[in-house]
Design a protein around this nucleic acid. Structure first.
Lengths: 185, 185
DNA sequence: GCGCCTATGTTATACCATAGCGTTTTTCTT
DNA sequence: AAGAAAAACGCTATGGTATAACATAGGCGC
């Protein structure tokens, strides 16, 4: 969440809003948001941090009182992904609720390695920049995934996470000398 | 790559150049590019498409004539990642040679879902855009990962890869009229 | 009821990655 | 050159992620 404490807002409202939106989106699309899919969506929102499929499976079992197998979970996730209700966080093999479903956007995430929170962005300038790179490469983009890992404001202020590998790490952060696309072709 | 045939250039030169660069980078860093690590780097470059750890392991076994265990492969990969000689492709659980090692940059990849080729970008405007979003969020970035999936120029021209859902189109990733609830993110 | 489509259940397995520990090789120090 | 420390490697086992394939159940139009 970066600057916002997960508990500084009414989280239940948060979840309810997401569920309500999901219902209307599915209704409009003619898709069935079944009880199970809704449970999965709710659990993902409850966590408010990227949630893995197996932890999710465990919670789903607790919730339903019966054993749940991986395919069941993955099928629900697949449905939710397809309808833009959640995002997959590749760098964590996890899933997170989409904060503005129904609107066109590409996934842009800020992921704190210390507290584990993930904040979704939808930065217009960034979207524009990304889109502009593509035509020059003749590439037809279908899915854009941007995941930025680091420390959120809160965690960055604390000393215990001070191992700031920003400067000397080979997998460099964003700072890059001016250089144009370059490839060996 | 992308639209270009992997064999339209002298691939061996490509590999040799990468190996030579790797040697000089490691020498400068005081790191040991052992025979095994070099083999791994070479195999990754030979593939010229993102290569998974297990396929890599198989090739490594063939090359060396003896059984190789996963940790061996992953340790080599870890070394190469740490020194910026390869990139991890999260969306494919695979690895690809870095086209401009030694220079600070974040990984920006165009991945074709049809032919599997991946092209690395280093677009200055994009880097700038990304960098500019962060301060406003109080976020301290350490690693940026951008992976764009779609169709490269060549594959886009062919009819068999039809399901074209352009990103950022007003409609969500999935269909509008006829529904079929399966799609990968 | 019947056929069809969708969702779900179930078993098994494939695929990806790391922990932990012992051995070998290299490098540094004396 | 001998010995200690560190780095790299081999190996076994296991954890974590994801899907294939097939079976079952329920809704819905006819």
């Amino acid at each position: 969440m970066g600057s916002t404490d997960p508990h500084s807002h009414n989280h239940q409202d948060c979840i309810n809003t997401a569920l309500a939106r999901a219902k209307s989106i599915c209704a409009e699309a003619g898709a069935k948001l079944t009880a199970q899919r809704q449970s999965v969506l709710q659990l993902i929102w409850q966590s408010h941090k990227p949630l893995g499929a197996y932890p999710l499976m465990g919670q789903l079992q607790q919730l339903s009182g019966k054993p749940i197998a991986p395919p069941t979970v993955y099928r629900a996730l697949e449905f939710l992904l397809a309808h833009g209700l959640i995002h997959r966080v590749h760098s964590l093999n996890a899933f997170i609720g989409c904060t503005h479903p129904g609107q066109p956007h590409s996934g842009q995430l800020l992921i704190c390695r210390a507290c584990g929170d993930a904040q979704e962005l939808d930065n217009a300038a960034l979207n524009t920049s990304i889109r502009q790179v593509l035509p020059s490469n003749g590439f037809f983009a279908e899915n854009v995934m941007l995941e930025i890992t680091g420390l959120c404001g809160g965690c960055h202020a604390k000393p215990e996470h001070g191992l700031e590998r920003q400067i000397d790490s080979p997998e460099q952060p964003i700072d890059s000398p001016e250089r144009k696309d370059n490839h060996h072709e």
